[in-house]
Computed example of a mutant assay.
Amino acid sequence: MALNAKNLLTVLGSVLAFCATSVTTTALAADKKATISQAFQSMLYLPLYVAIDGGFFTKEGLDVTKQTAGSPSAALSAVLSGSADFSLHGPEWTAVAAEKGADVDVIANVVNGAAVWIATAPDVKFTSIKDVKGEVVVSGQMPTTSTSLFFRALKENGMSPGDVKLIQVPLGSEIGPLVAGQSKIAVMYEPGLDQAVAKGMKVVLSFPKLYGEYAFSSITAKRSIDPDTAERFVKGLQSALLYMQTNPAETAAIARKEFPTLDAPVVDAAVKRMLADGVYPKNVDITPKALTVAMDTQIALGNLKQQPKYDTFVARSYIQPALAAK
């Protein structure tokens, strides 16, 4: 169909109006904002930092602000109060809140291994967890997953916490008694573990390898979260996790940026170990097995009454689109 001058102007006007609307819509999408409250600034949460610093949230049109609450309960409270859209901590906190009637779910995986290790002095003979019986062991102050897992391992091997001489210290300071010789065995997180290795200690037990899939830390959101915001967030996190698996050097560089006060070789070793041991997951999925194993620890400790119902507790409506995205 031929266009006369009048029709051409009309068409051009419509096109320009459409373009203006598209630009405005795109700009609004790119400026969509979200806040996440993390329990701590932690090496375990590196997938979140990669998603932010690597621009993966930005690619999904999401501007994410990170806040540090100081504890899992405070991070979760930020979501419940509406001051944050998402929180990052162990899913057991979400399960306890949901058990009490809170309208919260977990929507993505961040840490999928029981990220705890046992380190010893180089002269310690260690063939199994049974070798700690009667020994002085330093571990984090309860409640913490590292000490909880240690207790679980003792129980599974016919022992109890009373079978060891336990020194509980503030999280992150386990290396002090170990290096000072007050204890020759320590239950540790990263990066303290590789700080100890750098001082000559040896790693004798990997809980990630012992327990396999373990929903250690995850993203929590209210069920009333804006679905579009949640979907963008989970897709951005998925892209970051894929990137970490194929770009370990670049991932370590982001970790060094996030933890500038740590020695670079320690950061690099910690990232390498957590990738190799499966602590950083390959995707955002939370499997029934991973959730069950993690919640069993909390049930055994009396923190949780029963397993949460997987189909209602894990919001796969956000996970599945992220897994399907190319």
Rank of each mutant, 00 (worst) to 15 (best):
K184A: 05
G302E: 06
L80F: 07
M201R: 13
F207M: 09
P227N: 06
A121K: 15
A95S: 15
A230Y: 12
G278I: 08
I225L: 08
G172Q: 02
C19W: 05
K165G: 01
K184W: 09
E213S: 10
V137T: 11
L178G: 04
P122C: 05
G176N: 05
S87L: 06
W117V: 06
D123R: 13
M244Q: 10
E156C: 00
G236D: 11
A290S: 13
A17R: 09
A324D: 12
D263Y: 12
M159Q: 01
D296G: 03
D53L: 02
G113T: 10
T35Q: 08
L28G: 12
Y211N: 04
D63G: 02
V279Q: 12
T35N: 02
A78R: 00
F86S: 01
P191Q: 05
S218H: 06
A294Y: 08
L9K: 15
N112Y: 11
N247R: 07
G134I: 09
T68M: 03
A17M: 12
A290G: 13
L80C: 11
G13T: 06
K32L: 14
N7Y: 00
A102K: 10
P122D: 00
T312C: 08
V137H: 00
L193Y: 00
Y310Q: 09
D85T: 04
N112V: 15
K272P: 11
K100R: 15
A315E: 08
L44M: 07
L241T: 04
E174T: 00
Q298V: 09
A29W: 13
D277N: 02
A17N: 10
A276H: 08
S81L: 13
S206P: 03
Q67P: 02
